[in-house]
Amino acid sequence: MIDLQNVEKTYFSKNGDVHALKKTNLHINAGEIFGIIGLSGAGKSTLIRCINMLETPTAGKVFVDGQELTAMRNSELRKARQNIGMIFQHFNLLASRTVYDNIAFPLEIQGIDKAVIKQKVEPLLELVGLTDRRDHYPSQLSGGQKQRVGIARALASNPKILLCDEATSALDPQTTKSILELLRDINKRLNLTIVMITHQMQVVKDICDRVAVIEHGSIIEEGSLLDLFTNPQTATTKEFISTINNVELPAILKNTKIFPDYQPNTTPIIRISFIGNSAGDPLISTLIKNYSVDVNIIYGNIDSIKDTPYGTMVVELSGTKDNMETAISYLQERNLKIEVLGYVARND
């Protein structure tokens, strides 16, 4: 649906050129929710604006729905943009227009008949749950309601793509959740392709199918949400994941001396990560029953991405050296990610 080929964006200035976006290739499939996550200044704003050409790339090609936007004249581009809805962090509604007139705005631009506009706007008001606010002005609405107007406005011309520019960053967590649910709902119902940029990992985790991580103007990692979460490759990605998942050592171990190798009278600390079905296995009881080791759970977290459960657990094993070694190799044989974090002094 969206194809960026070697897209670059450089801002030229007297104080030195800024490479906001380095050679970037990106393919986004029809009907998916694609997340682009990065810190401020990473280039995600520039990237999303290259998709609808609000920023003209310095080099490269942009294809949307089979059409090359980078080859179009202004008038053709305006027409193509009607296929690409966009919502914004600060909503960008017209303050002098009512909710109804804001939603009608993109249709008005296309010169559509008033009666036809009415037929389109009313179901959209219903969809975003603002029928009773139709004659209110934006200044009379809450942030969440304003974003709902933004969404309805973006959907008015039946776009195939919705670009979300930090759409939930100005909203509180509760409102963010309801806006994300709405986006997910319209994604399914209208088979709308959604591209969202954000710096909030929670947002990505809640609704994205695939994710790209962007840093210093380059995409440094890209993959399915599950892959990214369970097997992050770069430090930045790990950092993002740690904002919502505790991947660091549990606090209780922070002040304890940890030996990298086995020492007499120490016990291993193991982090077990599991994805999918193995999350349901009776792992702990097997360890205790079959390998005669004691298991002390220090930290545990089970969550799910879409419908796949995944989790992390940090445990301390104790028993004879042999028993512990066979227990660890049992764990390694399972389809689990095992990481021996170190050894701590036995406290018995």
């Binding site: 609000l54 008038s75 581009l77 305006r78 943009r81 914004f88 002098s96 993109p106 631009i109």
Partner: peptide, 30 residues
Amino acid sequence: IDPGVIEASQSMGASPMQIITKVLLPEAMH
């Protein structure tokens, strides 16, 4: 007028003339 509002109109495919008559002037009228 907030540049974001102008950007939003551009993203909907508004022409410069439409932005002037439907966005800039009405929004700034007061």
